[in-house]
Structure formats: C-alpha cells, structure tokens
Design a protein around this nucleic acid. Structure first.
Length: 254
DNA sequence: AAGTCGATCAACCGCTTCGGT
DNA sequence: TACCGAAGCGGTTGATCGACT
C-alpha cells in the first residue's frame, strides 16, 4: 500500500520510506528537534526533501500517534466536528489526540463520504435532501444547540467558582471534555441507534493532563536497534548546527 | 488458480498562510 | 508595506490488499 521508491532528477528519494530512513529521521528529531525542515534531511543523512520528512514525522513517526481502527466515540466526534468545521482537517485532528489530519481525511473519504453519497442517491431528487440527511442535520443542530448552552453553563459555573483561578487553557480542555461527555450521552449515532458513547476522558484515560507538555522519554533498550543507538546518543553520524543549544534539551530527554 | 475491481492509506503536489526582514 | 522563504494544509494520486467472479 505504499508507493514504489524512486529517485528524482535532484537525487532525492521519493515514495515508500524504508525502516532505516525512519530510524534516521526519528533519531535525529528526537535528539535535535525539527529546527528547519528544509535543511533537516541533509543533517540527518537523508536523501529526502524537507516536506517529505515533515510529512513522515507528522503522520507516522511522531510519538503518541494512535494507529488502528476508530472507536465509536472518535467516529461520532469526526462527524460532529466535520459538520461544524467542514474540511478543516487539521482543526479536527487537533481535537482528536493521537490522530493526524491525513488519517482523518482518509477516514472521512472512505467512510463518511461514501455514506453521504449513498444517502444522496437514496434521497428524493426533488426534495434535494433525504429524510436520513434531514434527521442527521436535525440531530447535529440539536447537538450544537445543546453544546452551546452547555458551554455557557459551564463558563458561568467557572466564573462564579473563582474569577482568580480562571485558567483559560485548562478550562477550555475541561469544557471540551464536559461538553463531549454530556453530549455523547444524549447523542444518537447516524444509524439512529441510541447508544452509550464513552466520554472523552474515558476514551483517553491514558492521556493525563500534562501528557503533551511532558518531555518525551525514549526507552533506548526497546525502541531502537543497537546500530541506531549511536545516532541518538550522538557518538557519530549526526550533525546539527544547533548541537550546543539542543544539548540541554537532550539532557532532559535522556 | 487467475483476473478484476473496489477499498484503503501512505505519500505527493500545489496552494495558502505565517513570520521575518 | 512588500517581499521572500518556510511551514502548514487540503486535494489528489498510486501501490497494495482482499473480496469477488
């Protein structure tokens, strides 16, 4: 399911990434960060363009990415967010921890779009909108109204509780969690089933509050083969103009 | 067993946005 | 304020797999 590897006229590799390339890119970014995507491949020893490296890191190698099938909760969230935001895949991805915009976009095109096409083909051409679509739209509308009311209620609650301790970031997170939790309990899925969806916090119990801010710890013994440990540890092979300023960061990591 | 076709998803491409000068 | 380069974003492509004939 990957493109055949080839080399373009500039000598840059294209197509499927090899395990060795993945290891090089991962090792480099974990040690030095992505200070400049265009120059990074040269320093990391990769014959790839910066864009390709960025994409590979963002969509496949970045720690914390979830692979595999989507939960019912995620499916519902994608549908809801797409109703609200349209094709703003990065915005949708930002609200689904561990999923990438590319992944969500693919998922949408293969699952939801197909479904909506079926709905349109089944619908009365004169009516312009199917009963199913209409009902879905009504559900979304009700849900939006509910979440909007709920957001105001939560905001009032927080404002009353403590004006001094108001932390917009954590409150936004909490609001999102509360809204999703409550709305999920009343939401119907697109098939019209009235079923329980786990709340946001239930689904992502593995992600505690500080997860994304914490330094990423790498288990060198299990994550990398022996031949690439030296790359991470910087004995040789990697070079970075940022070595001095990233040394502190590296110390934090290892 | 071989061929066909649709589904899937990694990767590419080109346009837009953002930030620095 | 205009320009330029880098990063980000979204649409599209193409290789592979599995189901079906």
């Amino acid at each position: 399911m990957v493109r055949a590897a080839r080399v373009d006229e500039k000598g840059l590799r294209k197509g499927a990434w090899t395990e060795e390339e993945d290891d090089k890119l991962r090792a480099y970014i974990l040690r030095y960060g992505h200070w400049n995507w265009r120059l990074l491949p040269r320093f990391a020893g990769l014959d790839r363009c910066g864009k390709s490296c960025r994409l590979r890191w963002m969509n496949y190698l970045k720690p914390g990415l979830k692979r595999g099938s989507y939960t019912k909760h995620e499916q519902d969230l994608i549908a809801k967010l797409h109703d609200e935001l349209g094709n703003k895949w990065s915005a949708i991805a930002a609200r689904l921890p561990g999923r990438t915009d590319n992944e969500i976009k693919n998922y949408w095109h293969t699952h939801f779009k197909k479904r909506s096409e079926r709905v349109i083909s089944k619908s009365d051409p004169d009516a312009g909108i199917s009963r199913e679509e209409q009902s879905s739209s009504e559900i979304t509308h009700s849900l939006n109204a509910f979440t909007s009311d709920k957001a105001q209620e939560i905001r009032r609650k927080h404002e009353n509780a403590s004006a001094d301790n108001w932390d917009s970031d954590s409150c936004a997170e909490q609001n999102c969690s509360e809204i999703l939790s409550e709305s999920s309990s009343v939401a119907l899925d697109r098939e019209g089933n009235d079923e329980y969806f786990p709340s946001f916090s239930d689904s992502y119990s593995g992600f505690h509050e500080g997860f994304w801010e914490e330094p990423f710890m790498v288990d060198l013994e299990t994550t990398y083969s022996q031949e690439y440990k030296f790359l991470i540890l910087g004995e040789e092979g990697l070079s970075s103009p940022y070595i001095s300023c990233f040394d502190d960061f590296a110390v934090t990591l290892f």
